[in-house]
């Protein structure tokens, strides 16, 4: 028989953890995206107020801990599963066949995850740079609010190599999100045992739609900022 700990560390249990945290992160992406849309407004009040609220609100701080927990669990489980799976085939085949029934993204989940981890570290560095490295990111000494909206818009729209570099990293990161979701979205349902001939085709279709639309929306924002900024 099995204790709950044994159940959660078995190969099926680990997939449950991956599936549940995966679904949680999928939902988080939508929340994140809806906030990002305020960046599109030329007037920074909405975004800056939003950023201020996100920093100060106690409930947000609590959910931040839950969010970090979700990310950490997903990443740690992913790394542990990858190690276990690699060990299960210590000696590789010499000749590999590319099967047309097997999607490449499904085989590249751990590699895509590693790319996402690197992106996440860069992303969080940028996030904390403004949150903690500046004593109070929202208020300057003379009591006026720091224009975070302007800073972010500048990051993407500034000329020269730096602006292009920011855009490139962001685009590559979102491409990795897209490929990760292409397999990951429907895979979370399979891992949780939610498979049924009536609903699975719909879930798979929705997953592919989500994998394209959501990262595309994320990536469109800086490009819109860049091209509308240059027009002025």
């Amino acid at each position: 028989m099995a204790s709950l700990k044994e159940s959660l560390t078995s190969s099926v249990g680990r997939k449950y953890v991956m599936g549940l945290t995966g679904l949680f992160l999928i939902v988080f992406l939508l929340v994140h995206l809806s906030g990002n849309f305020t960046l599109l407004l030329k007037d920074g009040t909405a975004f800056n107020t939003y950023a201020h609220f996100m920093k100060e609100n106690l409930l947000i701080k609590l959910s931040e801990v839950i969010l970090f927990g979700g990310f950490l669990l997903h990443i740690i489980q992913g790394l542990m599963l990858t190690a276990k799976n690699k060990a299960a085939r210590a000696v590789n085949y010499q000749v590999a066949h590319k099967h047309d029934k097997v999607d490449w993204t499904s085989k590249a989940m751990s590699a895509l995850g590693m790319i996402l981890l690197i992106f996440l570290i860069i992303h969080l560095y940028d996030f904390f740079r403004f949150k903690y490295f500046v004593a109070d990111p929202q208020m300057t000494a003379d009591g006026t609010m720091i224009d975070l909206h302007g800073i972010v818009r500048h990051e993407f729209s500034e000329g020269g190599l730096e602006g292009i570099f920011h855009l490139a990293v962001y685009t590559l990161g979102m491409a990795a999100v897209s490929f990760h979701l292409w397999h990951g979205f429907q895979s979370t349902f399979q891992s949780l045992g939610l498979r049924h001939p009536k609903y699975t085709p719909f879930i798979q279709g929705l997953g592919k739609l989500y994998a394209v639309v959501v990262p595309a929306a994320f990536v469109a924002i800086p490009y819109i900022i860049k091209f509308t900024a240059e027009a002025h």
């Binding site: 099995a2 044994e6 078995s10 190969s11 099926v12 680990r14 997939k15 599963l81 276990k84 799976n85 060990a87 299960a88 085939r89 099967h99 029934k101 097997v102 999607d103 499904s106 085989k107 989940m109 397999h183 429907q186 895979s187 399979q190 891992s191």
Partner: peptide, 17 residues
């Protein structure tokens, strides 16, 4: 499932291979 893990098989990535 416990025996499957004990024998050293990997976990499922849902590739469908």
């Amino acid at each position: 499932v416990a025996e499957m893990d004990a024998q050293g098989f990997g976990a499922c990535t849902n590739t469908g291979a």
